[in-house]
Design a protein around this nucleic acid. Structure first.
Lengths: 144, 144
DNA sequence: CGCATTTTTGCAACGTTGTTGCGAATTTAA
DNA sequence: TTAAATTCGCAACAACGTTGCAAAAATGCG
């Protein structure tokens, strides 16, 4: 996918979600589209966009979460990770039922979009609403 | 299990792991044995033990993690949760392959020791070392 | 038991992550 | 182009977690 195509798509996505199209939002969303499937932390974005204010990044990530553009990935180390949602996600109604993979060698977090979280039978009395599965190990690149 | 039995067991566990038996360690470990299966956050412990120093709690939790008495549960809200390990866990070699349940109503986190994380087939090139599965919804008590 | 050594604890200070309020700048709509 | 609404940057704050160091407690040994 070409860079200009991404930029067109980004403006469209923002307008579709009822958000105004600002420079900062485009910059942040562009980072996610540059490496689809890869999750980013606040610190990654801050580093790559150098001059952008910390608070703006936090607020933008929250906005994207609310509007269903991003989803979070639970992380043992306590820092929030964000990744692009697929088209089926809408405002307040996520479908991120895929497995996440965390490489313990290079640290990258990847959405395994093709792999759905398997069902489990809960004990009597428990009702499931959401399931999260994170597998850690070594990724394609680090395994060579 | 009676309270005195717990206290005996706690001293034994600490000595077995090569730790000295101190008042603070006994107090913290006792909290976990009081509600087996339930996970605790640093803040829970601080609240229940009122006078204990924050730093001592952090350091004790780390020690118990290292020695294989506790394991962590990844948590979307960013705060670390800790729960007792089963007997099969040893220093540096955890077997916490059970599913964790997080009640979104009362906030409690429970180890579902009977339910093992199901295997998933990863794409070519990925090697799994650890799997985490957290299901959120409503628990037994809140579902009545 | 009493004493020396090792370990643990509490305090203070610091770092990181994330949030809130508010005025200035930007975007949008008319 | 201009007015209203939204977003951005700065400052200040709060929560969570870590580190260094001196006092206190636990352990080991004669």
């Amino acid at each position: 996918m070409s860079d200009t195509n991404n930029i067109d798509k980004i403006g469209q996505l923002l307008r579709q979600g009822g958000m105004s199209v600002t420079e900062k939002r485009v910059q942040i969303l562009h980072l996610f589209f540059a490496q689809p499937g890869n999750a980013l932390r606040h610190a990654d974005i801050e580093q790559q966009l150098g001059s952008m204010d910390r608070v703006t990044i936090y607020r933008t990530l929250h906005t994207f979460l609310e509007k269903g553009l991003l989803h979070t990935i639970p992380n043992a180390d306590g820092t929030a990770m964000y990744a692009l949602c697929k088209d089926e996600c809408h405002e307040g109604h996520h479908h991120d039922d895929h497995v996440h993979f965390l490489c313990s060698q290079c640290g990258v977090t990847i959405c395994l979009d093709g792999i759905v979280v398997p069902q489990v039978k809960l004990p009597q009395g428990y009702a499931a609403r959401q399931m999260e599965m994170v597998i850690s190990g070594t990724c394609q690149t680090c395994n060579i």
